[in-house]
Design a protein around this nucleic acid. Structure first.
Length: 156
DNA sequence: GCCAACGTTGGC
DNA sequence: GCCAACGTTGGC
């Protein structure tokens, strides 16, 4: 099975790539996704061994900060069942979970953040989901071609 | 902090 | 099933 590529958004004030790097085993669950389209990717499409870009949103600047690898495929997001959790969802049922999460492991931090502004000017990336007008998906697919173009750009 | 764009909710 | 109102995302 071939590797697929993804982009995960996070506000660095909530959880940054540095937080992932400093986590035990450099691994963390990716919880709190409460959007059905993003949930479907987490539950159905993202596989162990897939690669992800770690995107910092609402940041200075917003952009791709580095990469990580999927180490655990979709499983129920338990934070949905915890009333004290910020991501609690009273309507979800532990016996038939609505929300899913994955585990990712830190791979690398790019020498510099590839800002949204910079990415917009890369011809190979014009079709990227991230760059579409009004795109808010916090879990989104990335093509191999886009992945390679971005990794190459990061090393410049 | 503003606000455009999108997603969700709920009345009908 | 429509759609207005509301809530959220996320760039700026």
């Amino acid at each position: 099975m071939s590797t697929n590529y993804w982009l995960l958004k996070s506000e660095p004030t909530a959880f940054s790539i540095e937080d992932l790097k400093n986590a035990p085993k450099k691994t963390s669950c990716w919880d709190g996704v409460r959007n059905y389209q993003a949930r479907n990717f987490l539950r159905d499409s993202i596989k162990k061994g897939d690669k992800v870009f770690f995107y910092h949103s609402n940041a200075e600047p917003s952009g791709i900060a580095g990469t990580a690898e999927v180490v655990k495929e979709g499983y129920p997001d338990h934070t949905a069942f915890e009333p004290d959790d910020q991501h609690f969802d009273a309507k979800s049922d532990a016996k038939n979970p609505t929300w899913y999460m994955i585990d990712i492991k830190y791979e690398e931090t790019f020498p510099r953040v590839l800002s949204l502004e910079e990415l917009k000017h890369v011809p190979a990336l014009t079709d990227m989901v991230l760059l579409q007008k009004g795109s808010r998906l916090s879990v989104q697919p990335v093509t191999k071609k886009q992945w390679e173009a971005i990794c190459k750009l990061a090393q410049k």
